[in-house]
């Protein structure tokens, strides 16, 4: 029984993703993890700085780390589900030790492998993602208490103050969007959004 976890409201990933996207004013890069995380990111309104990771669980944070190191003046946000982060908890230790000040991680935790039939994850019982993050060294790690608390925590510049991790208890409502799947298109649009694409005659 995970009695130490603070009381948190169960919130809507769809609504909070919209809140987050509306707050982004500095072309922050957002790396969306596989599944409903991405569907809601896309539903919140596509931005050129969104990368939709549709392939493997557990890679949103490592990808976000690479982007954050490559563009240290840009805020980078990784969105990941509980099932996905559980697949690669080690990346939190890597991030904690590198200390990228421009990287923020948001974990949408509904304690379910929602998309595969709502099987419970480890966070449904003993495992507390914030405790894990703090334990590996991401000191700025917090459970989000409610929507107002979320707004307060994201009302800041994302190019500093990191690494930080916010964990949010969410319900089991499905994601609202349908992300385009073309990998080359997603890659190219994102790199253009970050000013990292090759310029050429085809851009005319």
């Amino acid at each position: 029984m995970s009695s130490k976890r603070p009381l948190t409201k169960t919130m809507s990933r769809t609504a909070l993703t919209r809140t987050l996207v509306q707050k982004l004013k500095r072309d922050e890069a957002v790396i969306g993890g596989i599944g409903n995380t991405n569907f809601d990111l896309f539903a919140a309104g596509h931005r050129p700085q969104n990368f939709y990771m549709l392939g493997s669980m557990g890679l949103a944070c490592p990808i976000a780390l690479g982007v954050a190191l490559a563009q240290p003046d840009r805020g980078v946000i990784a969105l990941e589900g509980d099932g996905s982060i559980l697949m690669g908890l080690g990346c939190l230790a890597t991030i904690a030790n590198l200390k990228p000040r421009n990287l923020t991680i948001i974990i949408w935790d509904n304690a379910l492998y929602q998309i595969t039939g709502k099987q419970p994850t480890a966070t449904s019982a003993a495992t507390d993602i914030v405790a894990v993050a703090r334990g590996v060294g991401i000191a700025t790690s917090e459970w989000v208490r409610d929507e107002a608390h979320f707004e307060k925590l994201i009302d800041r510049r994302f190019d500093e103050g990191g690494p930080a991790l916010l964990a949010v208890k969410i319900d089991d409502a499905p994601g609202q969007g349908q992300t385009p799947r073309d990998p080359a298109l997603i890659r190219n649009r994102f790199m253009k959004g970050l000013g990292a694409a090759r310029a050429g005659a085809l851009d005319a």
Binding site: A29, I31, F51, G58, L59, A60, C61, P62, I63, A64, L65, G66, V67, A68, L69, A70, Q71, G88, G90, C91, A93, T94, N97, L98, R187, F190, M191, L194, G195, A196
Partner: peptide
């Protein structure tokens, strides 16, 4: 970047490429 597993490294190089 010392990785905890090689899998992370695949994400890292992808992110690096995406960031230029």
């Amino acid at each position: 970047v010392v990785l905890t597993t090689e899998e992370e490294g695949v994400g890292l190089v992808a992110g690096a490429a995406l960031g230029g």
